[in-house]
């Protein structure tokens, strides 16, 4: 099951990354990219919450870094 969530999250991340690259190449405009990135964000969190949410915390997690 974890690999399914990982795949969903990776898809979301790819979608989030693809939009701006397409804007840079001129394939899509900025308003379209905003929709693509919003979709990517939703897909990322659908996959990443069950995938990464249960992982144990690390020593840096209660530290403050700038």
């Amino acid at each position: 099951m974890n690999s399914v969530f990982k795949a969903i999250a990776s898809g979301g991340l790819l979608l989030t990354a693809a939009g701006p690259i397409l804007v840079l190449t001129g394939a899509i405009d900025v308003p379209t990219n905003k929709t693509v990135m919003l979709a990517g964000m939703i897909v990322w969190f659908i996959g990443a919450i069950p995938w990464l949410g249960g992982k144990p915390l690390q020593p840096a997690d209660d530290q403050v870094e700038i």
Binding site: G12, L13, T16, A17, G19, P20, I21, V23, L24, G26, V30, N33, M37, M41, W44, F45, A48, I49, L52, G53, K55, L57, D61, D62
Partner: peptide
């Protein structure tokens, strides 16, 4: 703990979002 988990979940996506900001702004 709860917020640290949110931060861990969001971290990879946030890195991509920062890069996205740069690419879109450059375009």
């Amino acid at each position: 703990e709860m917020v640290a988990r949110v931060a861990n979940i969001a971290a990879p996506w946030m890195i991509v979002v920062f890069a996205a900001c740069g690419l879109v702004s450059y375009a």
